Computed example of a mutant assay.
Amino acid sequence: MKNIKLSKLWDSLHSSYWFVPTLMAGFAIALAFTMLTLDQGEIPGLINKLGWIYTGGPDGARTVLSAVASSMITVAGTAFSIVLVALSLASSQFGPRMLRNFMQDTGNQIVLGTFIATFIYCLLVLRTIRGGEQTIFVPQISVTVGIVLTMTSIGVLIYFIHHASTSIQSAHIIGEVGRDLNNAIDRLFPEKIGQSFPELKHRFTGEIPVGFDQEAAPVLALHSGYIQAIDDKKLMNIAKSKDLLLRLNYRPGKYVVQGCELMRILPGKRINEKLTKQINNAFILGKERTDQQDVEFCINQLVEVALRAISPGINDPFTAIRCIDQLSAAFCRLAER
């Protein structure tokens, strides 16, 4: 696996509701200052040629931007409330494991980011409008861009209404989990595994020594948590540079307790505090399981949805059948590798 830590960082950002809205808010700030710079330039001819540019006075500009800003923050609050309702429904009906899939929904993040970005843009432009008797300044281009952002936000709101109603349907949720399972299989079990390469045809592979368990020394875990990923390249580099034989005792998805035996190395006399820290740094621990290197996590998600569906309180066998169909397709895909 390449760039394990970067992949973990991207997975954490992708599963958060602050990353995309923050980026879009930063873009709105940059856009506001750029448009205001254009408005302060000497381009009256350009404004006269473009008939669709806003040409009203300062009072009209204030009214338009104030109305847009107040409506955007209201719609953003309503959209966030709908997202919370969807998360609560998913947790109660499909299980708490499914919350991660909803948190990774890029569509909801873009919707919230669009409303927040439009609100910030209108506020920044609104503060520059001057309508005194001596100095009058109306950022006509900036106001026009604000109106365009408003139209865009209306389109995003229409998309959000449709997206919110379809994202909580069982068929959609099961299909998304099945897609994540297939992606995990393709990522962790590529088709080239098992095919011999000409340059590796006559490569010698040694066997594990008979007295490995007696001669090897344990490497203890320095922290507790779920193993989300293992940097196998880093472990291979450590093993080659120090001429070690490593045997993992835990795989991704398992929970390790601080002080437990993380792995065993041979020869055991070479273990020291520095080597223990280097090996522990190759294990990425977290508070929850992820599908980064854990295929079983997606399987457990489908199993949990199926079990909840056939429980006496829900009694929905067709949802369980959909889960079985996804699992069957995934196992057939995995058996071909």
Rank of each mutant, 00 (worst) to 15 (best):
Q169Y: 14
A171Y: 01
T150Q: 12
V64G: 12
F189G: 05
I82L: 03
R322P: 00
E133Q: 12
A320M: 00
Y121D: 01
R333S: 12
V177R: 00
R62I: 09
Y250C: 10
P252K: 06
N281L: 12
G45C: 07
A30P: 01
L36I: 09
T114D: 04
T166D: 09
I120F: 01
A32G: 05
E207C: 06
A90H: 04
F160D: 02
S241Q: 13
L31C: 10
E42D: 15
I168D: 04
E42Y: 15
D243I: 03
E176Q: 08
S91V: 01
G211A: 14
H163E: 07
C332Y: 13
G175S: 11
H172V: 14
K192Y: 13
E336C: 11
K233W: 06
Y255M: 13
A171E: 12
P58D: 04
K254E: 15
P267W: 08
N108P: 05
F318N: 07
I310R: 05
D232E: 15
T150H: 11
S311T: 14
A184W: 06
I310G: 04
S71N: 13
S167P: 00
L275F: 05
E296H: 15
Q104I: 04
G77T: 04
L38E: 03
V145D: 06
K49M: 14
G113Y: 03
I29P: 02
P58W: 02
K277P: 03
S15L: 10
R203E: 09
V305T: 03
P139A: 13
L245A: 01
A86L: 09
M151L: 15
G175Y: 02
A76L: 08
L126T: 01
E261L: 03
G155D: 01
Y226T: 03
L246D: 04
V68G: 04
A216K: 08
N108Q: 01
P58H: 05
G131V: 06
N108Y: 02
A330P: 10
A86C: 11
Q278T: 08
K2G: 10
C332K: 15
R337D: 11
L9F: 15
M1S: 14
T276M: 11
I208H: 05
S224M: 09
I161A: 06
T22R: 02
Q93F: 13
A30H: 07
A76F: 05
K254N: 15
S66W: 07
H172M: 07
N108V: 08
F115S: 04
K192H: 15
V83C: 01
F115D: 06
L99Q: 12
D291Y: 06
I110R: 03
I185Q: 07
R179K: 15
M35F: 15
I47N: 11
R251G: 14
G268K: 06
I173R: 00
G286F: 09
A335L: 08
D105R: 07
T34G: 08
S311V: 04
R264N: 06
I310N: 03
P267G: 02
R62K: 05
L285P: 09
Y17N: 15
G146Y: 03
C323W: 00
